[in-house]
Design a protein around this nucleic acid. Structure first.
Length: 295
DNA sequence: AAGAACTCCTGTTGGC
DNA sequence: TGCCAACAGGAGTTCT
């Protein structure tokens, strides 16, 4: 599910409820999600106050009063649901037609006392949670070796050109590679490449060597990436199948897609007359317009 | 050593 | 209508 804009939307949705709250009780209904929960997970979390909730790439980071950080990744279908104090808890395994989710996939529940309850639901269980010392957070295995943050100061045309220089891998794959730039997923890579007029199968190195003003394409692509992500966050992310905000509302950036999931539809570029095509790159769908994005 | 393929899991969708 | 294959927003591991 969630790429950077969706995770940032979730972060903003959770922040008012979670930050400052004390996790009075932690209910963990399985021994693992994608990976096992950390050792003594419940006792390390229960009783802690949440001091801050931040984001790095597609990861949420809750700083706990114990000095540990709770790292949470939503995988493809992870969701958080906020409920007010006093709302009855749903029984796992029981069908509730009214809640808009599969309650059997509620895996973790944070009971926050007067602040209410936050439930983590994840149908496919590709998400995970981990605890690491706050002091060594960015040296931890999840973040060491992670690429640049696209909305941070590190992203520039020169930086992108440097990262991609000499790469034979397709632009699509390079932009999805979290070791280079972290936070983009399938949707926003397709949209960014369309806006930049770059064919997704071009070798990534071309943006470092393209003719014209030195590295003009790299600078353009860098600013387009920022723009797409910023616009998507402003729209509350994209809701395709599973994504919803923590309060249950939906994102609407999907209405702004120009190519993603539009195979066979006319290209939106005025006067183009082309058709959006789909191709498969390393097992994932890529959407593009061959006229606007020539090889 | 880079790049592609495979894998985890469940639910939905589209074609026959 | 039913059945089944393909596909889904991620990313670590394994192959070539």
């Amino acid at each position: 599910m969630p790429e950077l804009p969706e995770v940032e939307t979730v972060r903003r949705g959770l922040e008012p409820t979670l930050v400052g709250a004390r996790i009075e009780r932690l209910v963990v209904r399985r021994k693992d999600l994608r990976f096992p929960f950390p050792e003594r997970f419940v006792e390390r979390v229960e009783g802690q106050r949440v001091e801050a909730l931040s984001r790095r790439a597609k990861y949420l980071i809750a700083d706990l009063s114990s000095g540990e950080s709770l790292i949470m990744h939503l995988g493809m279908t992870g969701r958080f649901i906020i409920e007010a104090q006093g709302v009855a808890a749903h029984e796992p395994g029981v069908f509730y037609a009214d809640v808009g989710r599969h309650v059997i996939h509620d895996h973790v529940v944070f009971e926050l006392g007067g602040a209410g309850r936050i439930t983590y639901n994840d149908v496919r269980r590709f998400g995970f949670m981990d605890l690491v010392p706050m002091a060594g957070l960015f040296q931890s295995k999840h973040f060491a070796g992670m690429g640049i943050e696209p909305l941070g100061n590190e992203l520039s045309g020169d930086k992108l050109a440097g990262l991609f220089a000499g790469k034979a891998a397709p632009l699509k794959a390079a932009l999805l590679d979290q070791r280079l730039i972290a936070g983009l997923g399938n949707i926003y890579v397709c949209e960014a490449l369309f806006r930049a007029g770059l064919h997704p199968e071009l070798p990534a190195g071309v943006i470092a060597t393209a003719t014209g003003r030195p590295r003009a394409k790299a600078h353009e692509l860098a600013s387009i990436i920022r723009d797409v992500l910023t616009e998507a966050i402003a729209a509350g992310g994209s809701t395709l199948r599973d994504f919803a905000h923590a309060d249950g509302s939906l994102g609407y950036f999907q209405h702004a897609f120009k190519v993603y999931d539009r195979e066979g539809e006319p290209c939106v570029t005025r006067g183009c007359g082309g058709t959006v095509q789909r191709l498969v790159q390393s097992g994932r769908s890529t959407f593009f317009c061959a006229r606007c994005q020539p090889r």
